[in-house]
Nucleic acid binder design. Sequence first.
DNA 1: GAATCAGATAAGTCTGTGCTTATATGACGT
DNA 2: ACGTCATATAAGCACAGACTTATCTGATTC
Lengths: 104, 104
Amino acid sequence: MIENDLFKALADPTRRAIFEKLADGSMNASDLRQGMTISQPAMSQHLAVLRNAKLVREERQGRFVNYEVDPEGLALIAGWLAKYRAYWPARVDALRDLLKDMDQ
Amino acid sequence: MIENDLFKALADPTRRAIFEKLADGSMNASDLRQGMTISQPAMSQHLAVLRNAKLVREERQGRFVNYEVDPEGLALIAGWLAKYRAYWPARVDALRDLLKDMDQ
DNA sequence: GAATCAGATAAGTCTGTGCTTATATGACGT
DNA sequence: ACGTCATATAAGCACAGACTTATCTGATTC
């Protein structure tokens, strides 16, 4: 179940930090480790979880593997959230405004 | 960290099922158990986690405790999602339309 | 093709967490 | 006040998962 993979992937603070880094620009696994106290295998495992959750996707570039945010995961979360729109508070108006901006 | 509590709370499929039930209408803990193979203490513990994540809130009603969706948790997720709006795919247009409907 | 480097996988350990049974709390009816 | 019912808490167990070190794969360069 992809929804399960998604929330489980985001439940780990290290993985959210990795995702946030990638949101600031795509990087390979080694560059991602810069500034984080994390072993190479740990990073690789985290990336595998994020990839499986469709939050991140890879693109082989020779010896390196470039990682970037996969919009699909975000869309899935948005879809989950949309199911509960009846309960969204007025505060979510901010989000609606952001979406309006997206219209260009 | 509330963000952590949020995603950790949603990472469990049983808790998501409970949340979904509550989204269809507020209920007390005993009613929530109907149709779920889950012990009373397990339900109580799950509700505590959801409460702590601001996904659910309680309202004592005599001997019963009525539970309902807490919009705050949903707003927090929406806020998290909004940080990555640069990556939202066109598919999220559907979400935008839903938000437009919310305007009444 | 051998050495090197980026990254993935394997195997083991340790902590976190979801469950259980047992017990406590707190509100109601009699 | 006492028994009962709804829910919470305690304590213990078992499994999931995040980490480690060691090893493998696969691409680059010489």
